[in-house]
């Protein structure tokens, strides 16, 4: 009887695998980095997060909003961990509309830690109008919203290339190896020494792509470090109690002759 089961299951597994390899052949393999935040004990590289914020603030934020983050997040544990003073200074560089005041009028004031990140455009329509009709997606959860997460963002940033000779591109459309259909409306965002890192790290394209991707990964999952930490404790606890319960069970069942 057992002999017939194996072929069936093997057949099912084989069909599944052969189909899935078919499906993955269509897209080009993403660049694969050893991210510090992957794995069971993964943590963000603090310096990389701070540099990544700099790249975001000086480059990406010209078009991309990040509306679910607040300035206080920049000073919170598990993030870039700027000091509270630094975060306050960062916030104060942006202006938000507040009000109405006692006269019933809206006014602008410098942003505080409790304010959400201020975007460059008032609304989606304005963003579209300024970007050739396509909306630069909000970056708050972008890493989680793309297949391949951090590797995809990193690959896309470095995937700009000259199109093959038989490939025609419209005005304002660029060639990217990793974009689906290879057409992207975002111009190549990074170039050598585009930002001046305050910690003296050479701002190569790869370095900037890595830093900003790390920053975006944190932005999408700000409690990742807390999650990994709690996960380790939970799993340790579960393993210990599982062993204890296992031996209790064995002991109790030894009163009768059945094997558990």
């Amino acid at each position: 009887m057992k002999n017939i089961l194996k072929p069936i299951l093997l057949l099912a597994i084989f069909t599944t695998i052969s189909f899935s390899s078919n499906a993955s052949e269509q897209s080009k393999k993403l660049l694969n980095l050893e991210w510090s935040f992957k794995g069971f004990f993964g943590k963000f590289d603090r310096a990389s997060l701070q540099r990544g914020y700099q790249v975001y603030a000086e480059v990406c934020s010209a078009c991309h909003s990040m509306k679910y983050l607040s300035y206080r997040n920049l000073a919170e544990a598990g993030g870039p961990e700027f000091s509270e003073e630094q975060a306050k200074v960062i916030a104060s560089q942006y202006e938000v509309t507040d009000g109405p005041n006692n006269d019933g009028e809206m006014f602008t004031r410098p942003a505080r830690l409790s304010d959400n990140f201020v975007g460059s455009f008032a609304n989606e329509e304005e963003a579209k109008a300024a970007n050739g009709g396509s909306y630069p997606p909000d970056m708050s959860v972008l890493v989680k919203a793309r297949k391949g997460d951090a590797n995809y963002i990193y690959s896309l940033l470095l995937g700009y290339d000259d199109p093959p000779s038989d490939f025609t591109l419209d005005e304002g459309v660029y060639y990217n190896t990793f974009m689906s259909g290879n057409k992207i409306k975002m111009a190549k965002p990074l170039s050598e020494s585009l930002v001046q890192y305050s910690d003296g790290t050479p701002a190569t394209e790869e370095q900037m792509a890595k830093d900003v991707t790390t920053f975006l990964a944190w932005a999408a999952e700000p409690h990742l470090e807390a999650r990994h930490k709690l996960g380790f404790r939970t799993v340790t606890y579960l393993i210990i109690i599982t062993i204890l319960v296992y031996f209790s069970m064995k002991k109790v069942w030894s009163r009768i002759e059945t094997e558990v």
């Binding site: 990994h228 709690l230 996960g231 939970t234 799993v235 579960l238 599982t242 319960v245």
Partner: peptide
């Protein structure tokens, strides 16, 4: 249940 929760914890935390 505890063994099953270990699998569950893998998904939730990692």
């Amino acid at each position: 249940l505890l063994v099953f929760l270990l699998l569950f914890a893998f998904f939730v935390f990692y």
